[in-house]
Amino acid sequence: MSKTDFPLSIDSRPVYGVFEMRAGKHHLMIADAEGAEALLDLATAAPADLWAKTHIIYIPKTTGKKYLGKLQALSPDQFYAGPSYEAAKQRIADTFSKAHMGLQVYLAGTEGLMGQAMYAATSAGIPHTAIQTEHRGSTARRMQCVHCKGITEDVTHDPFICSHCGLNLFVRDHYSRRMAAFQGVCIDAEDPGNVPKSVGLFK
Protein backbone atom coordinates (compact mmCIF):
# COMPACT_ATOMS: atom_id res chain seq x y z
CA MET A 1 0.00 0.00 0.00
CA SER A 2 1.26 3.40 -0.98
CA LYS A 3 2.34 5.84 1.74
CA THR A 4 0.65 8.62 -0.22
CA ASP A 5 -3.10 8.29 -0.52
CA PHE A 6 -3.96 8.56 -4.24
CA PRO A 7 -7.59 8.45 -5.38
CA LEU A 8 -8.69 5.30 -7.18
CA SER A 9 -7.88 5.68 -10.88
CA ILE A 10 -7.64 3.99 -14.25
CA ASP A 11 -5.37 1.09 -15.19
CA SER A 12 -2.64 3.09 -16.91
CA ARG A 13 -2.01 5.23 -13.83
CA PRO A 14 0.97 3.87 -11.89
CA VAL A 15 0.52 2.63 -8.35
CA TYR A 16 3.33 2.80 -5.83
CA GLY A 17 4.27 0.50 -3.00
CA VAL A 18 6.47 0.38 0.05
CA PHE A 19 10.06 -0.83 -0.25
CA GLU A 20 10.91 -4.32 0.80
CA MET A 21 14.34 -5.88 0.92
CA ARG A 22 15.08 -8.02 -2.13
CA ALA A 23 17.80 -10.58 -2.84
CA GLY A 24 20.60 -9.30 -5.02
CA LYS A 25 24.31 -8.61 -5.16
CA HIS A 26 23.86 -4.98 -6.21
CA HIS A 27 21.26 -2.38 -5.31
CA LEU A 28 20.62 0.95 -7.00
CA MET A 29 18.49 3.53 -5.20
CA ILE A 30 17.38 6.73 -6.91
CA ALA A 31 15.43 9.28 -4.90
CA ASP A 32 14.50 12.93 -4.83
CA ALA A 33 13.47 15.27 -1.97
CA GLU A 34 11.33 13.46 0.66
CA GLY A 35 12.07 10.20 -1.17
CA ALA A 36 15.07 10.05 1.16
CA GLU A 37 12.68 9.03 3.94
CA ALA A 38 11.77 5.86 2.06
CA LEU A 39 15.45 4.85 2.01
CA LEU A 40 15.86 5.70 5.67
CA ASP A 41 12.76 3.66 6.52
CA LEU A 42 14.14 0.73 4.57
CA ALA A 43 17.35 1.06 6.58
CA THR A 44 15.51 0.34 9.81
CA ALA A 45 14.46 -3.08 8.50
CA ALA A 46 17.25 -4.02 6.09
CA PRO A 47 20.28 -6.10 7.05
CA ALA A 48 23.35 -3.96 7.73
CA ASP A 49 25.32 -5.40 4.81
CA LEU A 50 22.80 -4.00 2.31
CA TRP A 51 24.47 -0.60 2.17
CA ALA A 52 27.88 -1.96 1.22
CA LYS A 53 26.22 -3.25 -1.98
CA THR A 54 24.25 -0.07 -2.64
CA HIS A 55 24.63 2.92 -4.93
CA ILE A 56 22.48 5.90 -3.91
CA ILE A 57 21.68 8.68 -6.36
CA TYR A 58 19.89 11.50 -4.61
CA ILE A 59 18.44 14.81 -5.81
CA PRO A 60 17.50 16.92 -2.76
CA LYS A 61 15.50 19.55 -4.69
CA THR A 62 13.90 21.93 -2.16
CA THR A 63 14.88 19.83 0.86
CA GLY A 64 18.45 21.13 0.60
CA LYS A 65 20.73 19.55 3.18
CA LYS A 66 17.92 18.10 5.30
CA TYR A 67 18.52 14.41 4.51
CA LEU A 68 22.07 14.45 3.18
CA GLY A 69 23.80 13.62 6.45
CA LYS A 70 21.46 10.77 7.32
CA LEU A 71 21.79 9.21 3.89
CA GLN A 72 25.57 9.41 3.99
CA ALA A 73 25.53 7.91 7.45
CA LEU A 74 24.17 4.70 5.88
CA SER A 75 27.67 4.38 4.36
CA PRO A 76 26.54 3.24 0.93
CA ASP A 77 29.13 1.80 -1.40
CA GLN A 78 28.58 4.79 -3.71
CA PHE A 79 26.80 8.04 -2.94
CA TYR A 80 25.90 10.90 -5.25
CA ALA A 81 23.88 13.99 -4.53
CA GLY A 82 23.15 16.28 -7.46
CA PRO A 83 21.14 19.34 -8.38
CA SER A 84 18.64 17.82 -10.84
CA TYR A 85 17.58 14.66 -12.64
CA GLU A 86 19.00 16.16 -15.85
CA ALA A 87 22.39 16.47 -14.18
CA ALA A 88 22.30 12.89 -12.88
CA LYS A 89 21.08 11.39 -16.14
CA GLN A 90 24.46 10.43 -17.58
CA ARG A 91 25.52 8.84 -14.33
CA ILE A 92 22.32 6.81 -14.20
CA ALA A 93 22.71 5.67 -17.81
CA ASP A 94 26.31 4.69 -17.14
CA THR A 95 25.35 2.71 -14.05
CA PHE A 96 22.77 0.69 -15.98
CA SER A 97 25.11 0.07 -18.90
CA LYS A 98 27.68 -1.52 -16.61
CA ALA A 99 25.22 -3.47 -14.46
CA HIS A 100 24.47 -7.19 -14.39
CA MET A 101 21.28 -9.18 -14.04
CA GLY A 102 20.16 -9.33 -10.45
CA LEU A 103 20.57 -5.61 -9.89
CA GLN A 104 17.76 -4.39 -7.61
CA VAL A 105 16.32 -0.97 -8.35
CA TYR A 106 14.50 1.21 -5.80
CA LEU A 107 12.91 4.52 -6.80
CA ALA A 108 11.52 6.97 -4.27
CA GLY A 109 10.11 10.48 -4.20
CA THR A 110 8.04 12.34 -6.79
CA GLU A 111 6.27 10.75 -9.72
CA GLY A 112 8.40 12.68 -12.20
CA LEU A 113 11.64 11.37 -10.74
CA MET A 114 10.41 7.80 -10.41
CA GLY A 115 8.95 7.84 -13.90
CA GLN A 116 12.11 9.07 -15.57
CA ALA A 117 14.38 6.69 -13.68
CA MET A 118 11.94 3.87 -14.41
CA TYR A 119 12.25 4.61 -18.11
CA ALA A 120 16.04 4.48 -17.88
CA ALA A 121 15.85 1.14 -16.04
CA THR A 122 13.37 -0.47 -18.41
CA SER A 123 15.36 0.69 -21.43
CA ALA A 124 18.34 -1.09 -19.92
CA GLY A 125 16.31 -4.30 -19.78
CA ILE A 126 14.73 -4.45 -16.32
CA PRO A 127 11.00 -5.23 -16.47
CA HIS A 128 8.99 -2.40 -14.92
CA THR A 129 7.19 -4.81 -12.62
CA ALA A 130 10.51 -5.79 -11.05
CA ILE A 131 11.33 -2.22 -10.04
CA GLN A 132 10.27 -1.06 -6.58
CA THR A 133 8.75 2.38 -6.14
CA GLU A 134 7.67 4.36 -3.12
CA HIS A 135 5.97 7.73 -3.46
CA ARG A 136 6.97 10.48 -1.03
CA GLY A 137 6.59 14.21 -1.10
CA SER A 138 4.99 16.33 -3.80
CA THR A 139 2.11 15.00 -5.91
CA ALA A 140 2.73 17.56 -8.64
CA ARG A 141 2.58 15.94 -12.06
CA ARG A 142 4.88 15.73 -15.02
CA MET A 143 2.63 16.40 -18.01
CA GLN A 144 3.04 15.83 -21.72
CA CYS A 145 1.12 18.11 -24.04
CA VAL A 146 -0.43 15.73 -26.60
CA HIS A 147 -0.45 18.56 -29.17
CA CYS A 148 3.09 19.94 -29.17
CA LYS A 149 4.67 17.00 -27.23
CA GLY A 150 6.41 19.36 -24.81
CA ILE A 151 6.76 18.31 -21.18
CA THR A 152 5.65 20.62 -18.37
CA GLU A 153 7.13 19.63 -15.00
CA ASP A 154 5.58 19.99 -11.55
CA VAL A 155 2.03 20.77 -12.62
CA THR A 156 -0.17 21.50 -9.61
CA HIS A 157 -3.26 22.98 -11.27
CA ASP A 158 -5.96 21.72 -13.63
CA PRO A 159 -6.35 23.07 -16.25
CA PHE A 160 -2.91 24.51 -16.83
CA ILE A 161 -1.09 26.26 -19.63
CA CYS A 162 1.39 24.23 -21.67
CA SER A 163 4.79 25.76 -20.99
CA HIS A 164 5.76 25.18 -24.64
CA CYS A 165 2.81 25.91 -26.96
CA GLY A 166 0.57 27.86 -24.59
CA LEU A 167 -2.62 25.80 -25.13
CA ASN A 168 -4.97 25.37 -22.15
CA LEU A 169 -4.67 21.72 -21.14
CA PHE A 170 -6.68 19.54 -18.81
CA VAL A 171 -4.90 16.95 -16.73
CA ARG A 172 -5.74 13.32 -17.54
CA ASP A 173 -4.98 10.25 -15.44
CA HIS A 174 -3.83 8.45 -18.60
CA TYR A 175 -0.12 7.83 -18.06
CA SER A 176 2.69 6.73 -20.36
CA ARG A 177 5.73 4.97 -18.90
CA ARG A 178 7.68 5.78 -22.03
CA MET A 179 7.02 9.51 -21.60
CA ALA A 180 7.16 9.23 -17.81
CA ALA A 181 4.24 11.65 -17.93
CA PHE A 182 0.49 12.10 -17.72
CA GLN A 183 -1.39 13.36 -20.74
CA GLY A 184 -2.52 16.97 -21.16
CA VAL A 185 -5.29 17.67 -23.71
CA CYS A 186 -6.69 20.98 -24.94
CA ILE A 187 -9.72 21.85 -22.80
CA ASP A 188 -11.25 24.53 -25.00
CA ALA A 189 -10.80 22.85 -28.40
CA GLU A 190 -14.52 22.82 -29.20
CA ASP A 191 -15.18 26.26 -27.80
CA PRO A 192 -11.93 28.27 -27.94
CA GLY A 193 -11.51 30.63 -25.05
CA ASN A 194 -14.04 28.90 -22.79
CA VAL A 195 -11.61 27.74 -20.10
CA PRO A 196 -12.87 26.71 -16.67
CA LYS A 197 -11.18 28.18 -13.64
CA SER A 198 -7.93 26.46 -12.78
CA VAL A 199 -8.06 24.45 -9.54
CA GLY A 200 -5.10 23.40 -7.40
CA LEU A 201 -5.34 19.59 -7.34
CA PHE A 202 -1.79 18.51 -6.61
CA LYS A 203 0.66 19.72 -4.04
Binding site: A23, G24, M101, G102, G125, P127, T129
Partner: peptide, 10 residues
Protein backbone atom coordinates in the same frame (compact mmCIF):
# COMPACT_ATOMS: atom_id res chain seq x y z
CA UNK B 1 17.97 -17.14 -10.61
CA UNK B 2 15.35 -15.99 -8.12
CA UNK B 3 17.88 -16.19 -5.28
CA UNK B 4 20.23 -13.99 -7.29
CA UNK B 5 17.53 -11.38 -7.82
CA UNK B 6 16.58 -12.12 -11.42
CA UNK B 7 13.13 -10.81 -12.31
CA UNK B 8 10.46 -13.40 -13.04
CA UNK B 9 9.77 -11.82 -16.46
CA UNK B 10 13.30 -12.59 -17.64
Amino acid sequence: AAALGWPREA
